[in-house]
Amino acid sequence: MKKCSDFVLKMDESVTLAAANRAKALKAQGHDIIDLTLGQPDFPTPQKIGAAAISSIQNGAASFYTQVGGLPELKKAVQKYWTRFYGYDIENSQILITAGAKFALYAYFMATVDPEDEVIIPAPYWVSYVDQVKMAGGKPVIVEATQAHQFKVTVDQLEKARTEKTKILLLNSPSNPTGMIYSKDELKAIGEWAVAHDLLILADDIYHRLVYNGAEFPAISSLSEEIRKRTTVINGVSKTFAMTGWRIGAAVGDPEIISAMTKIASQTTSNPTAVAQYAAIEAFEENDNSFAQMHAAFEERLNKIYLQLAEVPGFEVVKPNGAFYLFPKVTKAMALKGFTDVTAFTTAILEEAGVALVTGAGFGSAENVRLSYATSMENLEAAIKRLKDWMNQ
């Protein structure tokens, strides 16, 4: 008897988690590994946020189920945060609090996608988008954004990919894995194209505050009322507030879609963890300067490490201005070392140089690797030295 479904047997494991697990396994065996795989801040959750969680445990508030869509107090905090950083007001009916932003994405696809509906996804893309669309029965349509064009797609490219079955356009800006940010004019053109063709927009804004060197984050949902009506924004506390382990995401959009997503949550996760919701209230209220300190550290790392990585033989790097990743093109480096497959190349770097990176293949790019600079400067500089030494062997 076959125990597992055909779908799950064909599904790939998340390449970021697989790379991190491989690095951990080698470390456990005694190997000296510098891990640059996971996209999570190396800063602990700020103390005020932790204190709010502890208080909710001590006073008993965290002991019980909450509303499926999230605590009213948390939704109120999200409303205030939205006005500050997005520039428009939202209602309770437009908000869903989820067990992580990844689940918010899943709930969106399950709530909106029918079999054979097409979802346009620019590549390079975050590793879970494609499989989540497939889980909902939809068809991912990949549009390649090349390094030569700053990893950003154009309206002309999107129009060529559009068919009568196209229903959703997914945008992730700042991007994982590239760190690139669409400009206001670029987003306005894309948003107006989506309006003209009656498409939904899914905006993954999880890195919205992590922008550097004077760059700005324009939210596509803030550009016009017509664009906003068809846009669902995914956000959360993981990246901005160093809370990856707390698993709190937020979806904001059309009340009909949010209601449908809430129905999905009611039959899957129920409410997000209560104690994490109380922590998230404190996070969104932002009563200290912990984000500013973390942001300054990321900006310093980017500016230093970008220059050093560009000196590694065969690594071609475009400097990003958001998130906390570098995504160098390594075709020349692979040729120098005799590789034709980027995953095999990444594995060799791990096993021979002791540096854990993530293959670009999982992001829809067979020419790149991803490294996270959400770790100490000491680790980053040591890792790049290892890469240089290995490439020069």
Score class of each variant (00 low, 15 high):
166 T>L: 10
166 T>G: 07
167 K>P: 00
168 I>T: 12
169 L>N: 00
169 L>I: 08
171 L>N: 07
172 N>T: 08
173 S>E: 13
174 P>Q: 05
174 P>W: 03
175 S>L: 10
175 S>E: 13
175 S>G: 15
176 N>E: 12
176 N>I: 06
176 N>Y: 10
177 P>L: 05
177 P>C: 09
177 P>E: 07
178 T>P: 02
178 T>N: 01
179 G>Y: 02
179 G>N: 01
180 M>K: 07
180 M>N: 11
182 Y>V: 04
182 Y>Q: 01
183 S>Y: 03
184 K>W: 02
184 K>E: 14
185 D>I: 14
186 E>N: 04
187 L>S: 14
188 K>G: 10
188 K>E: 15
189 A>N: 12
189 A>S: 12
190 I>H: 02
190 I>F: 03
191 G>E: 03
192 E>C: 01
192 E>Q: 11
192 E>A: 03
193 W>M: 07
193 W>D: 00
194 A>K: 15
194 A>E: 14
194 A>W: 13
194 A>S: 15
195 V>E: 04
195 V>Y: 06
195 V>T: 06
196 A>C: 07
196 A>M: 06
197 H>Q: 15
197 H>S: 15
197 H>K: 15
197 H>M: 15
198 D>F: 13
199 L>P: 07
199 L>C: 13
200 L>P: 00
201 I>Q: 01
202 L>C: 08
202 L>E: 06
203 A>Y: 15
203 A>C: 12
203 A>V: 10
203 A>R: 13
204 D>Y: 09
204 D>T: 12
204 D>S: 14
205 D>F: 04
205 D>E: 15
205 D>Y: 08
206 I>R: 05
206 I>E: 09
206 I>W: 06
206 I>H: 09
206 I>T: 14
207 Y>D: 01
207 Y>N: 00
207 Y>F: 12
208 H>P: 02
208 H>D: 12
209 R>L: 15
210 L>Y: 06
210 L>F: 07
211 V>M: 09
212 Y>V: 08
212 Y>K: 07
212 Y>H: 12
212 Y>T: 09
213 N>Q: 06
213 N>D: 07
213 N>Y: 10
214 G>R: 07
214 G>L: 01
215 A>Y: 04
216 E>A: 11
216 E>I: 11
216 E>P: 09
216 E>F: 05
216 E>Q: 09
216 E>Y: 04
216 E>V: 14
217 F>T: 09
218 P>F: 05
218 P>I: 00
218 P>G: 02
220 I>A: 14
220 I>P: 11
221 S>M: 09
221 S>W: 08
221 S>Y: 08
221 S>V: 01
